[in-house]
């Protein structure tokens, strides 16, 4: 079958700054999954050190990952903390709300991060819905 080999853009790995985009998205995911906090500080450092205003994909992914990380922190830490501190710990209903909220919120954020990483690997721009800056 000749259909097997369709010419596609083989130079994905040659896109300039693709690496930085991948690192930015990986840090977003690491912050959510393995080393919360630490990965975020590295992301802040990268965001400050490198030009994040460019129209290149590294700038796009840095801006997006940075903004999404802040939102993720607010949604996961702040909201959960507010819920836990205002609700009665001795009631099962508290846990019936907080645990599903945290799990759903966290997994959606991770899924978005994976999509961002997939786009970064493909050398494409990505825009986090709602939690990413629009430009």
């Amino acid at each position: 079958m000749n259909q097997d080999k369709v010419t596609i853009n083989r130079s994905v790995s040659e896109i300039p700054d693709r690496k930085m985009a991948i690192i930015a998205e990986s840090l977003y995911l690491l912050n959510l999954l393995i080393i919360p906090g630490l990965a975020f500080f590295i992301l802040i450092w990268l965001f400050a050190k490198y030009d994040n205003a460019t129209t290149m994909i590294s700038g796009c992914h840095l801006r997006q990952a940075f903004s999404a990380s802040i939102w993720a922190g607010l949604l996961l830490v702040l909201v959960t903390w507010v819920m836990l501190s205002t609700m009665n710990h001795d009631s099962p209903y508290t846990w019936m709300i907080v645990i599903p909220y945290f799990v759903i919120c966290h997994s959606v954020l991770v899924l978005l991060g994976i999509m961002g990483l997939a786009k970064a690997l493909a050398g494409k721009k990505f825009h986090y819905p709602i939690i990413g800056p629009s430009s």
């Binding site: 369709v6 596609i8 853009n9 994905v12 899924l111 994976i114 999509m115 990483l117 997939a118 786009k119 690997l121 493909a122 050398g123 494409k124």
Partner: peptide, 18 residues
């Protein structure tokens, strides 16, 4: 499962869907 999502969104986006 992580890789499955990554795979699908990486591959389907970087080519023209036929």
């Amino acid at each position: 499962f992580f890789f499955m999502v990554l795979f699908v969104f990486n591959v389907v986006n970087c080519t023209k869907c036929r």
